[in-house]
Nucleic acid binder design. Sequence first.
DNA 1: AGCAAGATCGGT
DNA 2: CCGATCTTGCTG
Length: 174
Amino acid sequence: MSLIKGRLKRDFFLQDVLEVARQLPGRYLVRENRGRVERYMILEVEAYRGEEDQACHARRGPTPRTKVMYRSGGLLYIYLIYGIHWMLNIVTGEEHHPQALLIRGLDKVRGPGRLTRALGIDDSFNGEDLGLSERIWVEDHGAATGRIITRPREGIDYAGEPWKDKPWRFILEQ
DNA sequence: AGCAAGATCGGT
DNA sequence: CCGATCTTGCTG
């Protein structure tokens, strides 16, 4: 586990997605773009966990789109929703255990579609390695203030019971 | 080849 | 509440 201040290493993202979801809010998403480095505190994430999770894109098994979720943690999974918005996800867990965290909210940039637009993130980031990338990574700046609350995930009623009610949305309240 | 649905957002 | 906009994955 990376306890020193600085970039979170791959081992952090090899944990189970629910563990990463508890630990990620309060950490910083860092984007380097045209020589500028911008840091945004992560405030809200949502966990998608395994083929059995009927809300997870991996519920139908590996496909061209979801194959990155089957790789080991620390890579980005990017997809387009409604033909309009890019969604930013971080793959977690061990290889062959498809999991990902949707980044739903940053400090000053709420909403998963808005934040990718604000940070200039598109499908060219699919498969990007957070441990090695020169343009996007996550930093630990020490303990966050505030508490983390959980809520059901948004927009996944189609998943049915029990998946639609799992409290797998994690929000940092400050 | 055709089609229905979607981890959203902004405007009425 | 509705439309935008287009990829994905299922069906045949």
